[in-house]
Design a binder for these strands. Sequence first.
DNA 1: TTGCAAAATGTTATGTTATAACATATTATT
DNA 2: AATAATATGTTATAACATAACATTTTGCAA
Lengths: 156, 156
Amino acid sequence: MTDKIDSSLQKAQTECMRTGLRLTDKRSKVLKTLLQAGKPLSAYDIADQFKVSFSESLSAMSAYRMLDFLMQAGLVHKLETSNQYLACSHISCEHKHELPQFLICDQCHTVQEIGLGTHLLKELKDSIENTGFTLSSQQLELHGICAKCRADLSPQ
Amino acid sequence: MTDKIDSSLQKAQTECMRTGLRLTDKRSKVLKTLLQAGKPLSAYDIADQFKVSFSESLSAMSAYRMLDFLMQAGLVHKLETSNQYLACSHISCEHKHELPQFLICDQCHTVQEIGLGTHLLKELKDSIENTGFTLSSQQLELHGICAKCRADLSPQ
DNA sequence: TTGCAAAATGTTATGTTATAACATATTATT
DNA sequence: AATAATATGTTATAACATAACATTTTGCAA
Ligand SMILES: [Zn+2]
Ligand SMILES: [Zn+2]
Ligand SMILES: [Zn+2]
Ligand SMILES: [Zn+2]
């Protein structure tokens, strides 16, 4: 678990270096906070958790700025439907996503970042662009009940 | 234009009667405010516009409550990506949508409520449910540049 | 028709999310 | 070392949303 987090942080650092972005100590710690949480947090939650984890102050204002940076760097996503932030699931792997897609469980609030087939995405994209609209990179947030909660609800 | 708005209000009234919902005068005026605006408004915008249009007070708190009602009735949608509300485009027509889909122009902020092919939606739904996730009714909000703005950007 | 209960609306307070504006500190470059 | 650019600290405020309780309106039954 810690290994996964460390390797993600390592990878993030390397990738930022390569692209000329400065993943400072605090920014890295904000990312680490999200990786450790393993679930979406609000900016204010992040600031609070940061203080607990690192015994170091972080104002919400700073959290927002660092989240902006991390989002630009593609390391963090914002869930618009819940105003929360979460670490990208694909930091440590090679998987490259154009359009992040999230399945959000309304029961246990876990979020799964998935990768729909490129075929399906292309179809979706084509269908939209046929209307004359030009898509910019965005994301899909789909709500429902996750497999685990579904099993808990109907036990047999 | 006014005809379209009136017929939508009429239809909304009829539909609410049929399903036992009470589309009160104020609720109807909130819906009218959105229909007249023809674009998404925040709850506070709605309260302000309501006062202007009807010379009648409406607190933001009341606006939120009326929006909740209108959303439950399927007459209004909330855009989660901009915290704004807009009248459903399909009030006056028979078109029934399970999953509302919006194309949001980041240039001029107009919103187009579209209907993707049922085939494509089914494929999307199947693809997601294959992961074990159970979708509840949700919506797609896709950002980009509308045809008009695109034309303005590249004039020839 | 009167009385009651439920639903709708009014009102005030407060919680939550996000940005503006300006000061200070750190870093890179010359 | 001087300078400029970037990052962070700090305070204030804007924007979005809900809680809690009072009052009014409505539907319905006695
Ligand atoms: Zn991602
Ligand atoms: Zn769940
Ligand atoms: Zn609609
Ligand atoms: Zn546009």
